[in-house]
Design a protein around this nucleic acid. Structure first.
Lengths: 150, 150
DNA sequence: GCAGCAAACTTGACCCATTCCAGAAAAGGC
DNA sequence: GCCTTTTCTGGAATGGGTCAAGTTTGCTGC
């Protein structure tokens, strides 16, 4: 618990109960969306408003304590694993997300063939596919996306 | 014009004025968002509803005639360049997008270090950085994002 | 050419993640 | 302990995007 407290102080954020609860929720549940965070926090602190969660998530994201990820067409999700620029696999069928380490070492993906004059500071990779569970449910289905995606 | 007609027929879609207009708009303006598509189409066909544009964009995306891209935190954008799995550079400051060919050849980025059992069918890469224009405007600014991003 | 059918289009309301606002409360420095 | 600053609360607004019902239109077969 005091671990989270130290993290907050390290980035000059005040230590509040909602912030600790959000950090704890993200430690225990990686890749959750905002609504789930709200539910998880309220399980212990029923009075916390959704606005507070949004504020907390933004503050933590801006200070780099958590990372916001947002696959195309889905809601924002957050994860507590930061510092390494790892990537994600997203299941087209159920939206499940898993971590994937950078394929070729440190920052190899950062090399674009032609950068058009852009100053590139990050390369974000999203692998799209089917998770083991969904693959088992529908072994040979060519169009996994049930139209409405999520 | 009949080029677009052929494309539509090739995927068994009826040839309608709104669809032709959307294809033409995307050919002339790569990486536009939905609202811009609406404006472009209405410049020639003022009566087309926004609902129709949404329907057309979805139909064309599902049949693979256009491709939908959606950088985190931004609105959906569409482009007519399909078939090659190229990637994009996105300017954090102004949201401008440029095409980037796959860095290492054919489908190298498709190789994840540990796929967690997922069946991966596509790797999507987004390079984040600053476009030449914005870099010129604010030569040495460490926090390019003016908070509200776009 | 014309009829009939299914796919597309129009209109308008609705949904829902996210944000804005203003007042009340709490955390930290002195 | 007191004061300033930041955060939290509650409610309302914003805005992509979607749903639904009814009308129109493009395509196929006669």
């Amino acid at each position: 618990m005091s671990d989270f407290e130290a993290q907050l102080r390290a980035v000059s954020l005040r230590v509040t109960r909602p912030r600790l609860a959000v950090l704890a929720a993200l430690r225990d549940h990686p890749h959750v969306d905002t609504e789930t965070v709200i539910d998880l926090v309220r399980a212990e602190q029923p009075t916390v408003s959704h606005q507070t969660i949004y504020d907390v998530l933004r503050a933590l994201t801006e200070t780099g304590l958590i990372r916001r990820i947002q696959p195309a067409g889905a809601n924002a999700r957050y994860e507590a694993r930061v510092g390494d620029n790892h990537h994600h696999v997203v299941c087209r069928s159920c939206g499940a997300i898993a971590d994937v380490d950078c394929a070729v070492g440190h920052t190899p993906c950062l090399t674009a063939s032609d950068d058009h004059g852009y100053v590139i500071d990050q390369a974000e990779v999203v692998y799209w596919g089917t998770c083991p569970d969904c693959a088992a449910d529908r072994p040979r289905n060519d169009s996994p996306l049930p139209e409405g995606s999520k």
